[in-house]
Amino acid sequence: MIHEIEEYVKYLDGVHKRTMQYVKVIPDELLNWKPSEDKFSIGDLLRHIASSRLMFLGIFEQGSWTYAGHDSGKGTSLEDISNYLESCQIKLTEGLLKMGNDILSKKVLTLLGHEVSAWRILMSIPEHEIHHRGQISTYLQINKIEPPQIFGLKIEQVKTL
C-alpha cells in the first residue's frame, strides 16, 4: 500500500521519464503508423497516455471518469505530443500533491460503479502507462527501431548462471 503521496508521485515521475525516453527514439514519420486500421497509432498511444492522466486525476478531484480523447488535436508532431505528455503529467502530479495523503484513504468509484480505495486506482495509473509503453516498444521493433533499455541493459548483457 502507498503511505505517502509524495513517495508515489516520485515513483510515477520515474515511470513518466522512462516513457519519455521512448518518445526520443520515435521518428516523426512513424507517428501515424499502426499495425492495422482498427488499432491505435504510435501518436494515438502517446496522446492516450497523456489524456488518461487527466482522466485519472478527474476521478480523484471530481469523482467521475471523463476521457478527453486521443485525437490529433492534442498534437500532430512529436514536439506537440511531447509537450502534451509533459503538461498532463504536471497537472496529475500537482493535483495529487495538492490533495495530499488524504487521497490514500479516500473511496472512489470504478468505471463499473464499484467503490474501491483510491490507492487501487493510483496503482492502475503506472500499470496503464507501462502497458501502452510496451505496445510502443513492439511497434518500434516491428519498424526496425531499437527501443530504449529502460534500466540500461539488454537481458543478453546480464550475467547468466
Rank of each mutant, 00 (worst) to 15 (best):
H3K: 14
E6Y: 06
Y8F: 15
K10G: 09
L12D: 00
D13I: 03
G14E: 12
K17Q: 14
K17C: 05
Q21L: 10
Y22P: 00
V23Q: 04
V25L: 08
I26K: 14
N32M: 14
N32C: 09
W33H: 11
D38L: 03
K39G: 05
K39F: 12
S41W: 10
L45W: 05
R47M: 09
H48Q: 02
A50M: 10
S51Q: 13
M55H: 00
F56H: 03
G63V: 09
G69E: 06
S72G: 01
S72A: 05
G73P: 02
K74E: 01
E79M: 07
D80S: 15
I81E: 13
N83T: 11
E86M: 07
C88D: 05
K91L: 12
K91Y: 09
T93W: 03
T93Q: 10
G95V: 00
G95Y: 01
N101Y: 00
K106T: 02
K107E: 08
K107F: 00
V108P: 07
L109T: 12
L109W: 02
L109M: 10
L111M: 11
L111F: 04
H114Y: 14
E115A: 03
E115V: 02
V116W: 02
V116M: 05
S117K: 10
L122M: 07
S124L: 10
I125V: 14
P126C: 01
E127R: 03
H128S: 05
H128K: 03
H128P: 04
I130H: 01
H131A: 00
S137T: 15
Y139N: 09
Y139L: 13
Y139G: 06
Y139R: 12
L140I: 01
I142E: 05
N143A: 05
K144E: 12
K144A: 06
I145H: 07
Q149S: 08
G152A: 08
K154H: 09
I155D: 12
K159H: 12
